[in-house]
Amino acid sequence: MAVIAKDGYIDLVRDRVENFHGNQLVYVGWDDHLLFSAAQAFPLPPEMPFQTLVSEVMASVFNDHPDFQKIDWERAEWVLDGESFSPAMEASLKENGIGHKSLIRFKTPGLKGINGLRL
């Protein structure tokens, strides 16, 4: 349904991928670790290898949590845009099907946050 507003809205999509200077937005949320109150937003080149996302980008934020160093990445469970998936670590974000404004969630079995309280 069209907008019902005082003046006609121009066709403006403010967050189209072209506006991010070659990057795309990617959100990453760590389930059961609510010390991070929300998923994190990152502007990343689509060619970035998934491994770099994990060891550099995600680490830059999540490494402040004592669980991060203990993660066994072989056992990590990934959800991309609502579907479970198995990332190819050496492949790029794009090759892994990660698009502009995709949400990646991950669970780390055995690690349930501070005192096991999902924090």
Binding site: Y27, Q40, A41, V61
Partner: peptide, 27 residues
């Protein structure tokens, strides 16, 4: 915290609200 949070497209609040009726620790 380092990094910037994901925001809700409409209310624009960081996505901190949880499933209070089923699992209050799940965003």
């Amino acid at each position: 915290q380092k990094g910037l949070p994901q925001l809700c497209q409409v209310c624009q609040i960081p996505m901190v609200f949880t499933e209070v009726q089923t699992d209050p620790m799940q965003i």
